[in-house]
């Protein structure tokens, strides 16, 4: 092909993120370009470095494209973080993906040296407990819970539990032996890590309401992007439009549904909070939003305004 791209990411070649999302997207770009583009995917950090280095690799042109978790480089994407917040993110990954595209003009400034192809989220953090049921925030009091990001840690603190930061691969033994009492993580992680064997309870709010989420990006080196002829740029844009963003939401939702199905089939209890219980959680988590607004104020960001915009945009695309 005329235009070769290297896409670097941190998960394995067999992960759903590669097979269900990155490969189809790369193929769509290639087709839209009429075969002028070829995207070679390099999984598992095969081009060197560690996951937190992905952003600088794309920015410096070490690779052309990356897929990464925004939270791996905390502090770099404070505005995008608004979509991770509980009560801003509830239960609709497709709507959130589309809302992030709508707000891109507000967010793009923090993607320095990068051209965003698309942003997305996963289906949202659920609570997965080793041996205790959770119906109200008080049930989490004093429990040790594994967290994924700094906003995740704030949620856990707001709920009266103790956050434990821990790399994902160490979660199963830690759960099994009671190093942590539970984890803050979506259902999609259940099959690969066999979490159903180490937990008894999976907890989420009414209508699959979750406790915040994680944001991801697929981005290109800015110089590389600017040097591309318009018809090639169009191919990337065409493959990353609204239909695709909705599709990405559906992909992550499906992985999540598969995970919870597996857990329930193996005898776990899937707790869906009642409307009142869900409201009690959302009330307890409201201070997290305030804390974030306060935190980003230090960077000169109008957090309250962003929260409002993010909520409105998500609502505009909501299908549920």
């Amino acid at each position: 092909a005329e235009y070769e791209f290297k896409l670097h990411h941190f998960l394995s070649a067999n992960s759903p993120a590669q097979t269900k999302m990155l490969e189809p997207w790369a193929k769509a770009v290639e087709e839209a370009s009429g075969g002028k583009v070829h995207i070679e995917i390099y999984p598992s950090m095969t081009l060197g470095g560690r996951p937190p280095e992905l952003v600088s690799q794309a920015r410096d042109g070490v690779v052309d494209l990356i897929w990464t978790v925004n939270g791996y480089t905390p502090g770099l994407f404070p505005r995008t973080e608004v979509f991770e917040l509980p009560t801003v993110y509830r239960n609709d990954p497709a709507a959130t993906n589309l809302a992030m595209a709508d707000l891109l003009p507000d967010l793009a400034g923090e993607y320095k040296g990068l051209e965003v192809m698309f942003l997305h989220v996963h289906a949202g953090q659920g609570i997965q407990m080793r041996d205790s049921a959770v119906h109200m925030p008080a049930d989490l009091m004093g429990k040790k819970i594994r967290v994924p990001t700094r906003t995740g840690a704030w949620v856990i603190e707001a709920l009266g539990a103790a956050p434990v930061a821990m790399p994902v691969p160490e979660l199963p033994p830690a759960l099994q032996k009671g190093v942590v009492d539970g984890a803050f993580i979506p259902w999609e992680i259940i099959p690969p890590l066999k979490i159903q064997d180490q937990t008894e309870y999976q907890i989420e709010g009414k209508d699959e309401t979750r406790f915040g989420t994680t944001t991801f990006q697929v981005s290109m080196n800015k110089g590389r992007w600017d040097g591309l002829p318009p018809e090639i740029q169009d191919a990337f844009r065409a493959a990353s439009g609204p239909d695709w963003l909705a599709e990405v939401g559906a992909i992550w939702r499906a992985s999540d549904d598969f995970g919870i199905k597996l857990a329930v089939e193996s005898g776990n209890t899937h707790i869906v909070l009642t409307e009142e219980e869900t409201a009690a959680f959302e009330e307890a988590m409201q201070p997290v939003v305030d804390r974030w607004v306060d935190e980003v104020k230090g960077k000169g960001i109008d957090g309250a305004g962003l929260v409002e915009k993010a909520r409105a945009a998500t609502k505009a695309h909501a299908t549920r």
């Binding site: 470095g49 560690r50 600088s56 410096d60």
Partner: peptide, 12 residues
Amino acid sequence: LVLSQLKTLAYG
């Protein structure tokens, strides 16, 4: 490429 990667590779 190598010069760029060396900025963070060792620390990483």
